[in-house]
Design a protein around this nucleic acid. Structure first.
Lengths: 338, 338
DNA sequence: CAGCAGAATGTAAGCGCTTACATAACAAAG
DNA sequence: CTTTGTTATGTAAGCGCTTACATTCTGCTG
């Protein structure tokens, strides 16, 4: 802080001015900066000195143009509320960093022209990871794929576009089975199986658990995945529109808002009705009873996406089948366990 | 110069191949793609046809090099757990999108070489927003500033680096005053004022509230801001290491973990001890009693940072004083209100 | 119908890097 | 001393765009 001001940076310092200042050629400057080729120690020092005398910052675009790749990965997510996407992004970013790739983020919920945004993104990255339900039209994804490697996160693989997912069907079957084995006989699935492959697969597991026991599964209650949708459903449930002794919600936000609304209305959870969710968000540990849910390796999922992107850029062929990460049932009180 | 050697390279469609395919010059292709100059409708159509016949995706780096800017903003955040940073990022991204700027994200907690990461970032963006406590050495920020516009989020302005912040002192004074006015006389500040200007200012408000009433403020309990730190503090409190009838925590995560730990140990909140936090995270609405806290306009803060970055890039001079956004006290039950 | 303004398009000069290839410098070997 | 490797460094050709400027093509005007 007490030090003299930083070197007067000529706003226009380029590799040429550095070379001139150091009395060497631009090739040499490039070599010391890339650390690639051998450079005499004395020369290296001259260059380094010149670099910070001029406050030189290389122009990434020029390098990208010369080397013909961006050294950046794109990530397209719907939004970031709730811990799920944030954790995914952290995993992605961390892995990308290890691979020396920058990450360029696009959030689709804030975009009016999604397609333009994605095209624009394609312009500045080497590969793109798209979240399954980020609402990118399939043909856009496919046309993207023609130019750049693409991986879908939590979606279905198709047309040579590979997918990375967390396991859903089996854990949903296990979770639903757990609830059924508490003796509940009217377990409602809350969430729209058509809203994405994650929910579809969770629903499939729910159906399977019923089938396993020779039971009939009720029709799913098709609601979106936000707190507000949960609250709305809770109102309908309290109004007697649905009958249930257990609710298997497509995610924790739904489960939490429903559980709280029921409790506020004097219902006993899990006494009157059990509630389970999916994701294991932070709040699920804090509410009483604790929310029984399923933990996904979200961080790892993001990291896996970044890794695959990198491998695809490096020329590896896309995988046919989705890569699946295991999930873990987290049993707390809301399912009826003590 | 002439055109590149292989006109055959389909995967490498360039402006040249498009021009050739459409039977026009590259200048014309550029013109229709930028939509800038007038182009005869017939010509425009030929070009557009060629573009998607070849699946042409422009190379962002080449454009950046030619126009001499990146059309991208950098954002440096510590991490993304908890809703605070995620919301900030969403605000930033949304505003950046409106301004047609890409956002390149760097998370410092995942980096081993922070300084290198930031330098690398500077290479590919026009301007950078750094979160105050992202642990970037001050001299690095300053040297960055010499080349690119920089704004600090939730930090102090200095050396021509402007800052955007949410109000802290007055709302902390109000919050602490509120607790004191419930009759609490041993209000402990939990959090380390030296960990960043946000906490420092909250502490300052806490001290001011005491002074307002002619009371003495206790020494702050210096703990970090995570759940784990809160739990550890709660254990010490239960063990009798501290004495308090109210806890003013530097953020909600701390407050929540402490409150829950106390309740689990049989203490009554707010009966035995009141607990208040800061941030108004989602969980704060769900716990019982609801957590009294302060809501910050986090989304707006992110958006403001993006806006300022853009204005700085456009040549506007940096502001001397931090731009401050108002916060809002959210009173729920944990402070002692019914 | 020459002359000319204005519109549409083409030409070519960069933008700041990387890197293949050429060259220089110097030491060891013949 | 040449010759021959080895290193260290320089030269220059792009990378794929944008854009100032030049050129060509219209359709009028006088």
């Amino acid at each position: 802080m007490g030090k003299p001001a930083s070197p007067e940076a000529k706003p226009g310092a380029t590799i040429y001015s550095v070379a001139e200042h150091a009395g060497v050629s631009i090739a040499t400057v490039s070599r010391v900066l890339q650390g690639a080729a051998v450079v005499a120690e004395a020369t290296r020092q001259k260059v380094l000195t010149a670099v910070d005398a001029l406050g030189y910052v290389p122009l990434g675009a020029a390098r990208s143009l010369a080397v013909r790749h961006h050294e950046a990965h794109g990530l397209v997510l719907p939004e970031l509320s709730g811990p799920y996407y944030a954790e995914l992004l952290m995993g992605f970013e961390a892995r990308a960093a290890e691979l020396d790739q920058s990450v360029v983020l696009v959030l689709t919920d804030s975009r009016t022209d999604l397609v333009a945004a994605v095209r624009q993104l394609a312009t500045r990255v080497d590969a793109i990871a798209v979240f399954g339900s980020a609402a990118i039209p399939a043909d856009v994804v496919r046309s993207l794929r023609a130019k750049k490697p693409v991986v879908v996160i939590a979606g279905e693989p198709h047309d040579g576009i590979e997918a990375v997912v967390a396991e859903n069907v089996e854990s949903a079957r296990e979770l639903a089975g757990h609830v059924l084995d508490h003796g509940r006989r009217r377990v409602l699935f809350v969430g729209d199986p058509d809203s994405g492959s994650d929910v579809r697969n969770r629903h499939a597991g729910y159906v399977a658990a019923h089938r396993d026991r020779g039971l009939d599964a009720a029709e799913p209650v098709r609601v979106a995945l936000s707190e507000a949708d949960g609250a709305a459903f809770a109102r309908r449930l309290l109004a007697g529109e649905h009958e249930a002794d257990a609710l298997m919600c497509a995610n924790d936000e739904l489960a939490l808002s429903i559980m709280t609304a029921l409790q506020d209305a004097g219902r006993d959870v899990p006494g009157d009705v059990a509630v389970v969710g999916w994701d294991d968000v932070m709040t699920s540990r804090y509410v009483r009873p604790g929310l029984t849910t399923v933990r996904q390796p979200v961080h790892e999922l993001g990291a896996l996406a970044a890794s695959r992107l990198h491998e695809l850029v490096s020329g590896e062929p896309p995988r046919e089948d989705a890569q699946m990460l295991p999930t873990q049932l987290v049993v707390r009180g809301s399912c009826g366990c003590t």
